[in-house]
Write a protein that binds this DNA or RNA. Structure first.
Length: 517
RNA sequence: GGCGACAUGGCCAAGUGGUAAGGCAAGGGUCUGCAAAACCCUCAUCCCCCGGUUCGAAUCCGGGUGUCGCCUCCA
């Protein structure tokens, strides 16, 4: 059991994750029918997580945002459950697309990748995604990559051919076990998008160097004027799949607990990782494989190649969408299912976030009035500070294959109650609830929201330049106008204040309350 | 062609054998000079279709239909 955490007291078991696990030859893999399986870490109390990251040649889009938000949330949750988590995510900084972009812009691959790594970290930071414990890069992993390829060659699982090195897919028995396919069932290139373009430099096309169409490149010979690394096979650069195998090994060893990535990586990327790593080590690469569903636009996958993507910064900067709205939107669906990105859905989420945010800010607004400070420094393990019923239901939802949608429903319950009480306080000036219970609800809301990475910024300073005294004076004028039944004048004052973000609330007896929105 | 996933109200989305959470939107009401805010209430006899199992199914089984993903690169 994971260390000392209050959750241990509540719930002796942890999560169920819906995907096939991957111990070598485990029955679950012969029947890839996803069955939920109780999560058990390799080492008690510790969890190793590796997430396939991005190729850094452009700004990240909403699909990347989803992947990062979902796995960041899983990480936060497991940490909160008391596990020590080590989280690693790679940057692919060797790739044709980076190379092309460098060529286009008359610069180097390093400049391009540095630029977009910085942009990536900035974007993800805005979405409140915790930084990984390590961000290995392909260009920093060459030794490990070459070593792995060498071992595969020695084990006769790989062969050199025309300066390239390929993995012999058919020699690996379990190939296809993760995605539930067999080589014989698949027709290579069936998608109809695989052409074998003639190479410009007259070198043989890749297909001609492969012994089997399913074989994939571990090492690619450098073309003229391309950056390269020296190797036993000649100057070249690593293929894509091999970097992850090498990085996992460097960072963690042979086997990790959880390997994550987008559903589009399941085949062939993850399948290839398994083939490489398990051929080399003879051990299972990862015990759990988790794949997040795609972000769709009009029912189609958002992707670079379809050109239907929105970058994170476009949405946040040009679209004026708050980062937490995007986060909430992407967590509203279960992580495995596709989620449709529409203006309407974002608009609905904006309203939803207002509600949650009001709840999270409750203490700023009413805490002192109720005699409790807004500080949230009571320990998270302090059961007395939490609304245990809500916490239990939250845990039950999250344990069930990360049901964030169900978990968010609990946040709404808490936030709506706080908002209701807050509004009554504002409008009626009285309290119809127990102050201590409210404090507990607010504290709980904050703790649970934090697990989902949802964070309310403190309310910004009022936009209005009007001083309280000036506002009071205008209200006084308005009251006089009302008493004189000069409603045109009174409404003018109301409208004017409204444009300054001041809302007036009329009460019986010519009393007018005001709030800054 | 193969493999995989999904189909719940206007939109989003839980629920996986015991009689449909939640959010958004909408409608009605209270209040009000008006308006806004606020508060209260309502909103799927039904879960893509057809069979079957069961005392009982959105939930299990069989068969359809539709949508999407993967079989280049992709989160």
């Amino acid at each position: 059991m994971p260390g000392k955490s209050f959750l241990e007291l509540n719930s002796p078991t942890i999560g169920e994750f819906n995907y096939p696990s991957n111990p070598h030859g485990a029955p679950a893999l012969q029947h890839p029918d996803p069955e939920k399986e109780t999560f058990v870490p390799l080492i008690e109390g510790q969890i190793s997580m590796y997430c396939c990251g991005v190729t850094v040649y452009d700004y990240s889009h909403l699909g990347h945002a989803r992947c990062n938000i979902v796995w960041d949330t899983l990480r936060r949750y497991l940490q909160w459950r008391g596990y020590r988590v080590r989280y690693v995510q790679n940057f692919t900084d060797i790739d044709d697309k980076i190379l092309n972009r460098a060529l286009q812009e008359g610069t180097t691959m390093e400049v391009i990748s540095e630029t977009y790594i910085a942009a990536y970290l900035e974007d993800m930071g805005r979405l409140n995604i915790k930084e990984a414990d390590s961000y290995p890069r392909a260009t920093h992993t060459l030794d490990g990559i070459k070593q792995l390829i060498h071992e595969l060659e020695q084990k006769q699982m790989a062969y050199a051919s025309g300066g390239d090195v390929y993995f012999s897919v058919r020699k690996f028995d379990g190939y296809g076990k993760l995605s539930g396919r067999t080589l014989d069932d698949m027709e290579a290139g069936r998608s109809g998008r695989v052409d074998v373009p003639a190479t410009s430099d007259g070198s043989p096309p890749e297909a001609a160097k492969k012994r089997d169409p399913f074989d994939f490149a571990l090492w690619k010979a450098a073309k003229p004027n391309e950056p390269f690394w020296e190797s036993n096979w000649g100057n070249g650069r690593p293929g894509w799949h091999i970097e992850c195998s090498a990085m996992v090994r460097d960072e963690f060893g042979d086997t990790i607990d959880i390997h994550m990535g987008g559903a589009d990586l399941q085949f062939p990327h993850h399948e290839n990782e398994i083939a490489q790593s398990e051929s080399a080590t003879g051990k299972s690469l990862a015990h759990y494989w988790l794949h997040n569903g795609m972000v769709n636009v009009g029912g189609e996958k958002m992707s670079k190649s379809l050109g239907n993507f929105t970058t994170i910064r476009q949405l946040l900067d040009e679209g004026g969408v708050e980062p937490m709205v995007l986060r909430l939107f992407l967590l509203q669906g279960q992580y495995r299912k596709p989620i449709d990105f529409t203006d309407e859905a974002i608009a609905a989420t904006v309203n939803g976030w207002v509600t949650l945010q009001e709840g999270l800010r409750f203490a700023d607004q009413f805490g002192s009035q109720l005699g409790w400070s807004g500080e949230r420094d009571r320990g998270r393990e302090d059961r007395d500070a939490l609304e245990l019923d809500a916490v239990d239901r939250f845990i039950a939802a999250m344990d069930d294959d990360l049901n964030t949608s169900g978990a968010i429903a609990i946040l709404y319950e808490l936030a709506k109650e706080l908002r209701r009480v807050g509004n009554i306080l504002t409008h009626e000036g009285k309290l119809d609830a127990d102050a201590q219970v409210l404090q507990r609800q607010w504290h709980t809301l904050g703790v649970l929201a934090d697990i989902l990475g949802l964070k309310a910024e403190p309310e910004t300073a009022p936009a209005s330049g009007l001083s309280d005294a000036a506002i009071e004076a205008l209200i006084q004028q308005r009251t006089c106008a009302k008493q004189a039944k000069d409603y045109a004048a009174s409404d003018r004052i109301r409208d004017e204040l409204k444009t300054q973000g001041i809302n007036l609330i009329d009460k019986p007896g010519d009393v007018t309350l005001w709030t800054r929105s």
